[in-house]
């Protein structure tokens, strides 16, 4: 664990040094107002860039959250098969995946997965 932490520290140092090196090495020719303004096809930006976004992205995130929690719950069945009764293990994993499948089909049936309505 200490070794892994040391390796992470080395990796962080390397990538920070690369960014810092590029800032030092980079040639700053002249300061210009246009260079600092956000890119928008040659004119000044008319609206703020922190615009509200479509609700679909948020809904996708909510569905993703459910499925990701379920995946995190599936993963323990791998080390578990050595520890618990095999019949119980089989039944539990089958029922769990079946519930996942039925949940997915239910969401599909309720038009949750449609991108546009």
């Amino acid at each position: 664990m200490i070794l892994l932490t040391n390796i992470f520290i080395i990796i962080m140092l390397i990538s920070n040094i690369m960014m810092f090196l590029s800032i030092i090495l980079s040639k700053k020719s002249f300061m210009d107002r246009e260079k600092c303004s956000p890119f928008e096809c040659g004119f000044d930006p008319k609206s703020s860039a922190r615009i509200p976004f479509s609700l679909h992205f948020f809904l996708i995130t909510v569905i993703f959250l459910i499925f990701d929690v379920e995946i995190a719950l599936i993963f323990p069945i791998i080390p578990l098969y050595k520890l618990v009764n095999f019949i119980f293990w089989t039944k539990i994993s089958f029922f769990f995946i079946l519930i996942l499948l039925i949940g997915l089909y239910h969401e599909w049936n309720q038009n949750m997965l449609n991108w546009t309505n």
Binding site: P38, E40, A49, R50, F57, I60, F64, I71, F75
Partner: peptide, 29 residues
């Protein structure tokens, strides 16, 4: 980075990566 293009690209990337990650993890499983 305060740009409309960057914000839209980031949103799209997040939604796409998130939704493919679920099936990726299940195939891995």
């Amino acid at each position: 980075s305060n740009s409309n293009y960057a914000l839209l690209g980031g949103l799209r990337a997040v939604a796409q990566t998130i939704s493919y990650e679920v099936s990726l993890a299940l195939i891995l499983m």
